[in-house]
Design a protein around this nucleic acid. Structure first.
Lengths: 161, 161
DNA sequence: CCCTCGTGATTGCACGATCAACGACTTCGG
DNA sequence: CCGAAGTCGTTGATCGTGCAATCACGAGGG
């Protein structure tokens, strides 16, 4: 049936849903921009770069396969290639051939990368706390964490490419 | 003091904080990618375009000032100029001069834009429900909505440019 | 052994976003 | 009434990302 009014059917979002959804969009954008600006000013690093360094630092032998890293941070393989290019150019990590699989490559943190991460961590975590974490109680943080874990599984199909 | 170990001080995030924060990053990215792909395939529209049309549809006289629109969707003024360019080229909205302020401009929804929004709404809202809203109880949605309202005010400074 | 198919990583291209600079206009103070 | 300062929107340069195509390699079947 054709719909000519501004209220189609039961497909509208109510105020609560709209606030929850649009709030997610706005909060994410605003948070990342603010943290990006802060981190860029203090250490010349972007949040996406920081995340890469952070995941590498937590990984065994401080290295990860390119494709694992890409799917972890939800970046396309080509996007990761260039991000790693930039970080390698700055000496923060290096590419290491994979002995098991000659077509694979690792990104591995360099000592300089560890130092940079160490230095940036304080700035970044303080920002994340100030702008985000500190606004919630531990119980609420748990709720949020669980929320993401309920949302993410249904999205496995999105990290193709 | 110099810090040489991998555990600086009290600046680390605990597991709960890490899941809440990284979960936000991952969930947002994955959700927007999935919804973008879906909406693009069904109606040739991106989520950012949809949001613009959506805000315009809710506005009085179906029009908004460029700068208000830019700060609403957290896009730079130049970014909005080009986004509006594309939507105007497709006939979904039009620019209207502002009589009060000769240097201002409105973006105004066209009838074609209303129809496109109407058509896309069903697809998009179904997607938002399926991937996001349906995974929470109404009470949890309230919690989320309140969460964003606690996060966003502290970020007013970020929507410059 | 070879041939095909699937996967890991990189590259060319197109697109979308920001920043800086600009022109047009409003506002405010002499 | 005029000039300085600020705001609104646009434009050019540049950057980051995704898609599609490509190359190198691994895995499985004749």
């Amino acid at each position: 049936m054709a719909i000519t009014t501004s209220r189609p059917a039961g497909h509208q979002l109510d105020a609560r849903e709209l606030r929850a959804w649009r709030g997610l969009l706005r909060a994410h954008t605003a948070l990342v921009k603010a943290l990006d600006a802060e981190l860029e000013a203090a250490h010349g690093l972007q949040v996406s770069s920081y995340e890469v360094l952070g995941y590498l630092a937590d990984a065994e032998d401080q290295r990860m396969r390119m494709c694992d890293l890409a799917s972890t941070i939800l970046l396309s393989r080509s996007g990761l290639t260039r991000l790693v290019d930039r970080l390698a150019r700055d000496g923060l990590l290096e590419r290491v051939a994979c002995s098991d699989d000659a077509r694979g490559a690792f990104a591995k943190l360099t000592p300089a990368g560890r130092e940079k991460l160490q230095a940036a961590r304080e700035t970044h975590l303080a920002g994340v706390r100030a702008l985000f974490l500190d606004r919630f109680t531990p119980a609420e943080l748990d709720t949020l964490a669980q929320a993401w874990e309920r949302v993410l599984p249904g999205l496995g199909g999105c990290c193709k490419t």
